[in-house]
Design a protein around this nucleic acid. Sequence first.
DNA 1: CGTGTTGCTACATTAAATGTAGCAAGGACA
DNA 2: TGTCCTTGCTACATTTAATGTAGCAACACG
Lengths: 108, 108
Amino acid sequence: MPRQAPTRGVRGSRTGRPIMALLDLLGRRWTLRILWELRDQALTSRALRSACDEASPTILQTRLTELREAGFVELTDDGYRLTGLGRELFQTFAPLHRFAERWTRREG
Amino acid sequence: MPRQAPTRGVRGSRTGRPIMALLDLLGRRWTLRILWELRDQALTSRALRSACDEASPTILQTRLTELREAGFVELTDDGYRLTGLGRELFQTFAPLHRFAERWTRREG
DNA sequence: CGTGTTGCTACATTAAATGTAGCAAGGACA
DNA sequence: TGTCCTTGCTACATTTAATGTAGCAACACG
């Protein structure tokens, strides 16, 4: 099946439903991690790379571009940081932190 | 099938912090989508595939195995469905739905 | 028996991510 | 001015992950 959807960034969904576009974006490698690392501080591209276990700059740059286009991240004099919208997004899954703790405890 | 090891799926993080393991798992392709599609119904493997835009059975099977090992999904007589833990996880990012609507409105 | 499910796998192809290197632009400083 | 940093960002060859298509074995109906 050919690669459809000229509406950019909605890989894995031809419906165009917002939630699908969002799940698709968040489901790309490093996206969640980047949002997480920027949750309460601005980071330069290299500081972000360090925070992300020295992930490849290629893919970090790709994800940062996507996140900037989506309006979640912006580049300032202090480096990359979440926009107001990005902070809202982060808050919607911030409870994951506590859940993750309980989850790991559960399985030893 | 050499599914990944005891230290569950902590690709992209050497810290072992629970949140990193969770972000890593959720950041794999189709993971969020699967949890989303199972949010309020059990689905057979093929129904799930249809719900996921006919994604490759190979990768769906891989993700389902990971999600079962993580304790978020189980296979019953009715097909795949979220466990109690899986429902808890889903609820932590359920607000994404409303956010996605606002997000698209903003940029569309 | 044939027909139709189910969960799941093989495998060749294609797309995405990784790792390493390095560029151009800008600031500090000597 | 020139050297030395650091910044955001890119090239590119390699490796890994995902896709698409086909099909298996097990089970349930008729």
